[in-house]
Design a protein around this nucleic acid. Structure first.
Lengths: 358, 358
DNA sequence: CCCGATTGAGAAAGCGCTTTCCATCACTCG
DNA sequence: CGAGTGATGGAAAGCGCTTTCTCAATCGGG
């Protein structure tokens, strides 16, 4: 059916082995021979049979990309830039294909997809999104990743903490300075004069949740050691969806404890928070300031525009692509932390004078 | 290294052929034997070698998903639901993996990715996003798709017009009633009293652009045969990004021809339109009404919320997944048109009384 | 109770490529 | 001037699975 390597070899008057070597490099081939082969490839319109290559080489051109959900802008942007970076313009390298898997953040799903990817002899895997911090899962994941990396498939952890794997293995971690971002965001709110700061956190047990909340509380503590505890009643855990922010805020409002600002786990949640607030007749930022996290595109289209912390998703995607394809050497220690940046917009302002509610 | 079929066979005391048959079905295997094999698979934790399967069977578990850009919510949502639908909960079927490819809508990129996918012996392909309507490309694409479908890989065109391929081939088309949606949206604006309706269309030459604009103009024409032409100076073509909407609107404003409403190619563009309008000191919908298309999540978070046309992306993704895996038979004619729905929100209202500008 | 259908399972031939392991060959060193 | 040497290219053995092609065994009917 399709043109095979053997046919190209015959056409060029060389052996299949030579054609393979020309195509894959890493072996000296005389200039003339090389040209002849390349011409044959061109003339016959040869396209390698991926599965056959993968079977023989025990590694494929597939790169697994585990995300919570590509429909979520956070992951969509990350996966998008990653995918694009996998396909370099100058079609020099053989193109790697991105296999994206929605795990919903579920440990079992992550493991299940990794199994599938191992079965496909994926040439690399990128795990994104916060990690469920449960000892059992961490161990299982570390073991799996070690096995894959050991088999030659680079693994990149993106936006999640490093895992205990033997050094020297091709395992890299790309982190975001979530803690610093949350810290600066809280500082921003404090400097505006806010003290009763509500916090709609992500799901408990997730690394991202812990780190962001940690940075936030640290800033409160720095300002006033008693503040973190004082704000505890104003902290609620929720999911990462808009509705979670909405529900959490209604709950907060229902409780009646007054607050003048709300920081959310991420921008999506923040939009839910804002919606609930507005619905309750509160003005943003007049009555309550709202802040998100991630700096998704939606931030500039809400009214007022959302103060948030920019997380360099595109950069992370590109970096992850380079690391997982080996186009970029592992940084010392295997960890790269990308900076986050406070983006002050219209949704945060000084709190209203005392006496207003809530 | 990993457990192989042969080892499972040995463990179960049968031949490799039998194990393969148990795993793939489609061949009678006695109950006892089957049980024994399944047990062996379980005990050894056997995971099939994808490439080997694909090589022997000449088809893989990979499903290609071509999108303009997954980072764009429209495609992210589509690809997300498609991917999830590919992995049915009850882990009965062998899981299919989604290979997502960002084509930026470029014909060459589409072809290039299809080549790659053919090389991988993909078991199916879903092409999404409007098609570039250029004879050459249409022909080339039709030929490619025919070849793939002929080789047994179902092809699903999603959100783009059907292609001329021999019937009887597994090629399905899932369309959105873009025309109807645009028509009803225009009707809505007309019924509010708008007559000078600007339109920020998508890139020329793209099927989506043509169809949406067509529906829009048809509604204008129905209302008053002279209206389409009257609004021509208010129609501009742009890209599908927010900035395109922004730039186009500034251009419109600069021209000085008055208008009381702007319909955009999609929601993302509409947010850009709104931003430019607000920046020019115009109130929405007080001075100018704005409408989008697609009903992306962002619509409910803009202020005011964006009137738009809901496009059933999730449903389309699920449907495409079922069609491309053959879990759902092709509809007669191979075409399914999904309905769109007008979503009236706060960004559209009657035009201001004459005399206001512009 | 024997014979042609059926049903169930094994043997073996690839699928198309990579990759040792060798065989050349043209030189160069001593 | 013969052997050592690096640069090239070929032969062939798989990689792990699917799928004919075959054959043994079981079964119902005349």
């Amino acid at each position: 059916m399709a043109v095979t390597l053997a046919e190209v070899a015959a056409h060029a008057g060389v052996s299949p082995a030579t054609v393979s070597r020309v195509l894959n490099g890493g072996y000296p081939v005389a200039g003339g021979t090389r040209t002849r082969v390349e011409q044959a490839v061109e003339e016959l319109g040869y396209v390698a049979n991926g599965p056959a290559r993968a079977l023989a080489a025990a590694t494929s051109d597939l790169v697994g990309v585990l995300v919570h959900d590509v429909a979520d802008s956070f992951f969509g942007i990350l996966a998008g830039s990653l995918q694009s970076a996998l396909a370099p313009k100058g079609h020099g390298d053989p193109r790697r294909l991105a296999v994206v898997c929605n795990t919903e953040g579920a440990p079992e799903a992550e493991l299940a997809y990794l199994t599938l990817l191992e079965g496909q002899r994926a040439g690399g895997v990128v795990l994104t999104g916060g990690a469920v911090e449960e000892p059992g899962h961490t161990t299982a994941l570390a073991a799996r990743i070690t096995r894959m990396a050991d088999a030659g498939a680079p693994v990149v952890l993106c936006g999640r903490p490093p895992l205990p794997v033997p050094a020297a293995l091709p395992v890299a971690t790309v982190m975001f300075d979530d803690r610093g971002g949350a810290f600066r965001l809280a500082e921003h709110l404090l400097s505006l004069g806010h003290r009763r700061i509500a916090y709609v956190a992500g799901p408990p047990g997730l690394s991202t949740t812990r780190v962001r909340l940690g940075g936030h509380r640290e800033a409160l503590r720095r300002h006033d050691p008693a503040l973190p505890e004082a704000c505890d009643p104003l902290t609620v855990h929720a999911g990462f969806e808009r509705s979670a922010g909405y529900d959490a805020t209604r709950e907060l409002l229902r409780r009646g404890a007054p607050f003048t600002a709300v920081a959310a786990a991420n921008d999506t949640v923040a939009t839910g928070v804002a919606a609930a607030l507005r619905e309750a007749g509160l003005r943003i930022p007049g009555d309550v300031s709202v802040a998100g996290f991630d700096d998704l595109p939606v931030c500039v289209d809400t009214a007022p525009a959302l103060t948030t912390v920019r997380v360099p998703l595109r950069e992370a995607g590109i970096l992850a692509a380079q690391l997982v394809t080996g186009r970029r050497p592992l940084p010392p220690g295997g960890i790269t932390t990308l900076p986050t940046e406070l983006m002050v917009r219209g949704s945060t302002a000084p709190p209203p004078p005392e006496g207003s509610r809530p």
